[in-house]
Computed example of a mutant assay.
Amino acid sequence: MINFNGKLQSSTSLFLNHENRGLRYGDALFETLRVVNSKVFFWEEHYLRLMASMRILRMEIPMAFTMEYLEKEILKTIEANALGNKAVRVRLSVYREPGGLYLPESRGVEYIVETKPLESPFYTLNAEEYGVELFKDHWVNSGLLSTLKTSSRLVNILAGIYAEENGYDNTLLLNEKKNVIEAINGNVFLVKGNTIKTPPVNDGCINGILRKQLTKIISKLEGYALEEASISPFELQKADELFITNVITGIRPVTRYRKKQFHTEVSRDLLGKLNLQVRLGG
Rank of each mutant, 00 (worst) to 15 (best):
Q9K: 12
K39R: 15
M51L: 11
R34E: 13
S38E: 08
H18Q: 12
L16W: 06
G6F: 04
L23T: 05
L50W: 06
M63W: 11
M59C: 04
M54W: 07
R49S: 07
N37M: 01
F42W: 12
V40K: 01
I61D: 15
L8G: 06
E45G: 03
E19A: 06
E45C: 01
R24H: 08
N17F: 14
I56M: 10
L14A: 10
R55D: 07
V40I: 14
P62A: 12
L57G: 07
F41Q: 05
P62R: 15
A28Q: 09
R58I: 14
K7N: 12
Q9M: 14
L48V: 06
T12P: 00
S38C: 02
L29S: 02
I74N: 03
G6V: 07
I56S: 09
L16E: 05
E60T: 11
S13P: 00
R49K: 12
T32A: 10
M63F: 14
F15S: 05
E71F: 00
Q9L: 11
F15G: 01
L57P: 01
F30R: 09
L57E: 09
S10P: 07
Y25A: 09
N5C: 08
E45V: 00
R24Q: 15
F41G: 01
L16V: 05
M67H: 02
N5P: 06
L14T: 08
F65I: 02
M54Y: 06
M67L: 12
K39A: 06
F15D: 02
M51V: 14
P62Q: 13
M63I: 15
S11N: 14
K39L: 05
M54V: 07
E68V: 01
